[in-house]
Design a protein around this nucleic acid. Structure first.
Length: 964
RNA sequence: GCCCCUGUAGACCAAUCGGCAGAGUCGAUGGACUCAAAAUCCAUACAGUGUGGGUUCGAAUCCCACCGGGGGCACCA
């Protein structure tokens, strides 16, 4: 079977037609040319070098993970989009930095290594080479000298270095920024700062002092509840666990358990991460997602007295305090054991104890223990699915500070230990969850906010005046929610029973993984333990020891377990590299010891580490002294004026990174900013989310996916499509192997050429929209490029067909309209409409000059207009038109405003909103002249039949509407 | 359940401030070229903007309700 490329070059086709074969030849030639001439290399400013030519623009794509499957046509959508913009900006005089790197640590290479024994580096490098080749054939104008991969030793050296800076920092809440931990130590030593627990710094032993410092570091070890995934053999960050309590990768069960792990104190930055969103130009949807993730809420902490001491409760509705009728603690709450009495008490009210409260247990301790057992055996998923309220009475009462009322204390799993204080005051009148629980356990319900007339729901959570809310000292009655909140919080604070407080959903970032293929931590522990017998203190390795190289190991797999083996414990593959793990040194970070034996940290960093700062390394990829030179960073990323946070000028990628990558990267950047290493306070000044390329997939009668490329449209089939004559059902989804609908850029480049592929991807819709891939439609873009080629080159002879004649006025107008439109559309990334305007111009020229002889003064601007979208074809035509230099830096055409205005305007004339007639008037006509002309129109006179119109609306340049 | 985005010819998509529903592409139909086909070129037809209300001289555009599609969050006190 002949391929399209063969058909294009076969007999009967003019010898100099723009076929796929010719396109491929042109494209390879120009790609080689750009590479050999270093066309897209961009220099950093230097004191002795020449000043940069134009205003800088740092253009950035979210770098890809080089998977073994290679690219499909969906992947390069964003890359092509940024390339078009970058090329346009270069032609308008900007100095553009555009580079491409690889996020190359990651699980697939490691899993492949586990299966085959191939070193992950081998697999990764092969995949990167394939990606580079696939990207190169698309003609993307990247500065190749700036390409980095997170797995490069010279890259992860600096990832480790940044980790050391974070580890060597603490967050000074008074100053509102991170500072070197050495300054904290100095202040403690000098007595300027006291220890929060009242101990005297000078009397502490060295390990005790180190532990105090470790409690402040932005990177710290903690026994924290983590998400342990036995099947993957590793812990996961909160962000990597799905809503139904499974691993995002692989969909395995995840269990909560306590483990000693590396954490990043991202919560210290919660306010700045939320507030600084105001200063960046990001889509509102992404800002909202980040704000929701940080989850800042204003509220109050209230203390309820109990026999086991005060119980701290967080609430966002302190105004409803008079409506509290019981308290609930999370089952894991530390006070539960102290509260639980030996025997069931009689209620202070003198009533019988409600049978529903005890769960049938003989003693409170038994009831609580039994309930805890039930809860612990539930997975997170089950806990979420079970909406029925369960719980048990602890046997204890607390006192409501506003009215001295005794409130029974329950334990229930609808209260989470991880949020607030792990204890709530329950206000069934104004909270549906509390209402449900109160209903199950027969607890009193009291409204303290007046619901509106006709409200027939249960709990009322809306606005309204307070009721039933007064004691001898204070009355909230009649106050609206906000006023009531401030009043009661002030009253509580005055009595020492509470204070205003801010809560966040954001948790600290779990930063260690039990994996091989990641950055090793530059950390070690004393082999013989600590002199005070406490847990090991992590010791930073000196900068001179960087990079800490990944050792070779026999087995790359972490120890994995049965998916539901909740009691298993993680074990990193690096722990088996015993020669690497143990070493002897005299560490400055361990002043207590001289030369001593140490054991390396055997966890590795999560995949996010490299992506937190790669955009900084593009700026200065070969710097041996620093991760990025300060002046270079200031030039490319520095703030442009007051109120500007600085950062990358445009960052383009999918919305799937709205919280994870973008939040982590902002956090690292802010730490580096606080420590004075970067001048920008935000990494990405402007963010743009491109859409996805989706694809149709087809299933047969059994529901099995069939190869999408072999499916034909068939109106006679019940489903409209057939495969091998069988009807198949169409569905819409992601492009991928499992749906058997993958189309690769390689196929498209072979069948049509890269310029056609680029043009097609850019013309199917606006950059932000997802759209279906349709191979059938690609030919339209190809035909357009053939028309452009034919305007310049004779298909029979290969000679130029342009003439040095003057274009007519219509053609000139068409050209300048196109210039004007394209100049507006390209910087706005409205590539689909820019393409339409180019096609319109080409169609006009084809029609106007059917026998060749298109004026050079029109053709040359057309070629330049096309250059950002189809650079190879444009370069080729530009060169054939006699220009020896690349057009990459040629000036982009400018529209002549005089040619954009028309002499006359055609006005539709509406009568009562319906178009009844048309007229042509000079463009310079005044509103009154237009009105007069419209009223004089024969059709209008006929329709009005002598009557006076009630109203005449003239929209200049648009239309006239006459209301009868 | 809550929040956000979205709905325009058979398909993908256009339409400055609310102002003539159509720029462009595919497909369809007809024609040119061809012995024929492919490729290429030329021409034509096709929707009243998811549904129902409202505001307005005028609504795809603004407002309300509902329906469909996509995404995010989810016992967060």
């Amino acid at each position: 079977m002949a391929s399209r490329a063969d058909a294009g070059g076969g007999s009967g086709v003019p010898p100099y037609r723009y076929t796929a074969a010719l396109a491929n030849e042109i494209e390879r030639r120009w790609q080689d040319h750009w590479e050999s001439q270093d066309t897209f290399a961009v220099a950093n400013p230097s004191p002795d070098g020449p000043a940069p030519a134009g205003e800088k623009f740092y253009l950035l794509d979210m770098f890809p993970y080089p998977s073994g499957a290679g690219l499909h046509v969906g992947h390069p959508l964003g890359f092509i989009g940024t390339d078009v913009l970058g090329r346009f900006l270069r032609m308008t005089g900007r100095t553009v930095l555009h580079a491409m790197g690889f996020d190359a640590f990651g699980l697939p290479a490691e899993q492949y290594a586990v299966q085959t024994g191939t070193h992950p580096r081998t697999t990764t490098e092969a995949n990167i080479a394939r990606y580079r080749a696939q990207i190169r054939q698309l003609g993307l104008a990247h500065d190749e000298h700036r390409s980095v991969s997170t797995t490069d030793v010279e890259f992860y050296r600096w990832t480790q270095w940044i980790f050391l800076q974070i580890h060597a920092s603490w967050y000074d809440t008074e100053a509102g920024r991170a500072r070197p931990i050495s300054e904290l130590e100095d202040e403690l030593t000098a007595g300027i700062r006291a220890l929060p627990d009242g101990r005297d710094w000078a009397t502490l032993s060295r390990p005790e002092q180190d532990r105090v410092l470790d409690d402040h570091r932005l990177a710290y070890l903690a026994d924290a509840p983590v998400n342990w995934c036995p099947a993957l053999g590793t812990v996961l960050s909160n962000e990597e666990v799905t809503a139904d309590g499974r691993s995002e990768r692989g969909n395995f069960p995840v269990f909560r358990r306590n483990l000693r792990q590396w954490m990043m104190r991202i919560t210290a930055y919660a306010d700045r991460l939320a507030d600084d969103l105001d200063g960046v130009d990001w889509p509102d949807s992404v800002k909202t997602m980040q704000r929701n993730w940080i989850g800042r809420s204003q509220g109050a902490q209230v203390r309820f007295a109990s026999d086991a001491g005060p119980i701290e409760v967080f609430t966002t509705r302190p105004d409803t305090l008079f409506g509290a009728t019981y308290l609930v603690l999370a089952p894991e709450h530390p006070l539960v054991d102290a509260l639980t009495p030996d025997a069931w008490p009689s209620p202070p009210t003198g009533d019988e104890l409600d049978g529903r409260w005890t769960g049938g247990a003989a003693t409170p301790a038994e009831a609580v223990a039994g309930y805890r057992r039930v809860v612990a055996q539930r997975s997170d998923l089950e806990r979420q699915e079970a909406r029925d309220k369960t719980g048990v009475f602890t046997g204890a009462w607390a006192t409501n500070p506003v009215n001295g009322e005794p409130l029974p204390i329950f334990v229930a799993d609808y209260v989470l230990m991880g949020y607030g204080t792990g204890a709530i005051m329950a206000v069934p009148g104004q909270d549906q969850r509390d209402w449900d629980f109160a209903t199950v356990f027969g607890l009193p319900i009291r409204r303290t906010v007046q619901p509106p007339e006709g409200f027939d729901g249960e709990a009322y959570v809306g606005a309204g005046p307070a009721i039933n809310s007064a004691n001898d000292e204070i009355s909230l009655d009649g106050l609206e929610v906000d006023a009531a909140k401030s009043a009661i919080v002030a009253w509580l604070a005055g009595r020492g029973d509470g204070e205003p407080v801010v809560q966040y959903k954001l948790r600290d970032w779990l930063f260690s993984r039990q994996r091989y293929w990641g950055e090793p931590f530059p950390i070690a522990y004393a082999a013989d333990g600590e002199s005070d017998g406490g847990p090991s203190i992590p010791r930073a390795l000196p900068e001179a020891d960087l990079p800490v190289l990944l050792p070779d190991v026999e087995d790359y797999a972490p120890k994995s377990f049965a998916p539901d083996d909740r009691d298993s414990s993680p074990e990193s593959p690096l722990a088996r590299a015993t020669e690497w793990v143990r070493f002897t040194a005299d560490l400055e970070s361990d002043p207590e010891r001289g030369f001593a034996d140490y054991l390396r940290e055997t966890n590795t960093m999560p995949q996010w580490a490299g992506s937190c700062w790669y955009y900084l390394r593009y700026l200065d990829p070969h710097n041996k002294e620093r991760f990025v030179d300060a002046d270079v960073e200031r030039y490319w990323l520095g703030p442009q004026g007051p109120g500007d946070p600085g950062g990358v000028d445009l960052y383009v990628g999918g919305v799937e990174h709205a919280v994870l990558h973008l939040l982590y990267a902002r956090f690292w950047h802010k730490v580096l900013f606080d420590l004075g290493y970067v001048s920008s306070s935000e990494p990405f000044r402007k963010l743009f989310n491109q859409g996805y390329v989706q694809a149709w997939a087809y299933t047969d009668a059994r529901g099995v996916y069939v190869p999408a490329e072999e499916v034909v449209e068939d109106a006679s089939a019940s489903t409209g499509f057939t495969w091998n004559g069988e009807p198949v059902r169409q569905e819409y989804g992601k492009m991928g192997k499992s749906l058997r609908n993958v189309v690769t850029p390689d196929e498209m480049c072979e069948a049509y050429g890269a310029d056609t592929f680029r043009l097609y991807e850019m013309s199917t819709g606006p950059m932000e929209a997802s759209r279906p891939w349709s191979t059938r439609d690609v030919v339209g873009s190809h035909r357009f490029l053939q028309r452009v080629w034919r305007l310049v080159i004779d298909e029979q002879t290969g000679e130029l067909r342009v003439a040095d004649t003057e274009p007519d006025r219509d053609t000139l107008t068409a050209l300048h309209r196109a210039i004007d439109g394209v100049r507006t559309d390209l910087p706005a990334m409205h590539y689909n409409t820019a393409v339409a305007k180019l096609i319109e111009l080409a169609n006009h020229l084809t029609k106007t000059y059917p026998n060749g002889g298109t004026p050079r003064s029109v053709i040359e601007p057309l070629v330049l207009l096309l250059a950002p979208l189809c650079p190879h074809l444009a370069e080729e035509l530009w060169s054939r038109l006699g220009h020896p230099q690349t057009l990459a830096y040629a000036p982009f055409p400018e529209a002549d405003p005089a040619l954009l205005v028309e002499d006359t305007v055609e006005y539709p004339i509406q009568v009562n909103g319906k178009v009844r007639s048309r007229m042509t008037v000079p463009a310079a006509a005044t509103e009154d002249e237009v009105r007069a002309a419209a009223l004089a129109d024969a059709k209008v006179v006929e329709l009005l039949a002598g009557a006076e119109p009630r109203k005449v609306i003239v929209v200049p340049g648009r239309l006239v509407n006459i209301v009868r």
